[in-house]
Amino acid sequence: MTGRCWMTALGLMVMTAACAAEDATQSDKPTEEIALIKRDRTPITEFTPRELEETVDNLVSAINQSGLEPVQMVILLKHLSTFFEPIATGANRAMGELEAVGNVLGPSTQTNMDSGTESQTLQNQQIANAIEDGAQGIGVSPYDSFNEVSIRNAVAEGLHVVTFDTDLKDSGRALYVGAIQEEAGKLGAETLIKLLPKGPGTVVVHGDTSTQWYDGSQRTFGVLDALGKTGYTTQVVQAVFINGQENFDLDQLKTLILNADPPVVGMIGVFNISYRCVMAAEATERLDIPIVTFDFDPKTAEYMQKKRIKATIVQRQYYEGYLVPYILYGIQHIGLEATKQILGPLMVDEHRVNIGVDVVPADKFQAYNDFLDQIGSIQ
């Protein structure tokens, strides 16, 4: 019995020593190896924004060295369909990689942004709910000044707020993420100018020059500024987004094509409803007019396949959604200034992160469509 007891004690001593050795080995490992953020790799194609991808990698590296803790955040979209669907895809993917606590929220379908305040009121309520629920960060695509007070309230409560798609520069938000709209407009005009015949001629701009929609007007003014230096006459047709009133746009565009003096030699639409330019040109049997559009609406894609749209300027919606949670996570873990320093290659000023746009010519339609499919960003 005594011998067995000693054998048992010896066995326990050996097991204890082994466990102690294992614990020592574990403690020698860097703490960050326990729960490092690991990104899903983006396929490398001619359309992959490599500088943006590298910047996110650098941000992840800095966060991984800071000692990871969960971050509660909410991402608020105008809606979850059509244009915003790739944004939701990117945001959900990033939040999954970060294991962030929170949701991507928005109405399930697009509403009439100009016909009422239901969606705007809902977004204000969602911001108030985020404050009450103890969120540390909010990413929001605001309805211009309608949501400014709510964002200010969130900032006053200590929440980090990042806007995307639409900016509210006077709201107290920490950063804006998206395209720089005036530059995007100029790029669209420059793309069209290369396709125009020698002047004189009229270029139709399907856009928005009102002051109510800042980003929309900035993109339109960018187009007009670039075209104004060429000697072509420009005529603006106000874009209408209210469901059921698409024919108003078409009637205005058709009338201008038929009556413009000098004749119409080109068209550019600066929003995701740009495909209406093609519908108007076809209705007036002016298939010779070169047309450049914005975004990658399914109808736009259809006309690109038919070569009726010569090129489209595509905002990187997926990357808007993907980058915002990483920025909010970075601000919480390493601070705003350190985050901005890492984002430096993408920043155009102290508060705006430019993720750029893609110029997609018609002959690259399938290649670009394949890229969007690979990242899960098909609208």
Rank of each mutant, 00 (worst) to 15 (best):
S145G: 03
S145T: 15
F146P: 12
F146Y: 15
F146A: 15
N147E: 15
N147Y: 02
N147A: 14
E148V: 11
E148A: 10
E148D: 11
E148P: 04
E148W: 01
E148I: 08
E148C: 06
V149S: 07
V149R: 01
S150E: 15
S150K: 15
I151V: 15
I151P: 14
I151H: 06
I151Y: 08
R152M: 11
R152K: 10
N153R: 00
N153S: 03
N153Y: 01
N153T: 02
A154F: 08
A154G: 05
A154S: 04
A154P: 02
A154T: 01
A154E: 02
A154M: 05
V155S: 11
V155A: 10
V155Q: 12
A156F: 10
A156N: 13
A156W: 09
E157A: 15
E157V: 13
E157W: 11
G158C: 06
G158D: 05
G158P: 05
L159H: 04
L159G: 02
L159S: 01
L159K: 02
L159I: 04
L159N: 01
H160Q: 03
H160A: 09
H160I: 01
H160M: 03
H160L: 00
H160G: 02
V161N: 06
V161A: 08
V161M: 09
V161T: 07
V162D: 00
V162E: 00
V162G: 02
V162K: 09
T163E: 00
T163A: 04
T163K: 03
T163Q: 01
T163V: 03
F164K: 05
F164D: 01
F164A: 08
F164L: 14
D165T: 11
D165L: 09
D165W: 01
D165G: 09
D165I: 09
T166H: 03
T166W: 00
T166E: 05
T166F: 00
T166L: 04
D167C: 09
D167Q: 10
D167V: 06
D167F: 04
D167W: 03
D167A: 14
L168N: 13
L168E: 12
L168A: 14
K169M: 10
K169C: 04
D170R: 03
D170E: 06
D170T: 13
D170W: 01
S171T: 10
S171G: 11
S171Y: 11
S171F: 12
S171C: 11
S171V: 12
S171K: 10
G172F: 12
G172M: 07
G172L: 06
G172I: 04
G172D: 12
G172P: 13
G172C: 11
G172K: 08
G172A: 07
R173L: 04
R173D: 02
R173S: 02
R173G: 02
R173P: 04
A174S: 15
A174K: 13
A174H: 14
A174R: 10
L175E: 05
L175R: 10
L175S: 07
L175D: 03
Y176E: 01
Y176V: 01
Y176R: 03
Y176S: 02
Y176D: 00
V177G: 10
V177N: 05
V177I: 12
V177Q: 05
V177Y: 08
G178C: 07
G178H: 07
A179F: 11
A179V: 13
A179G: 12
A179C: 12
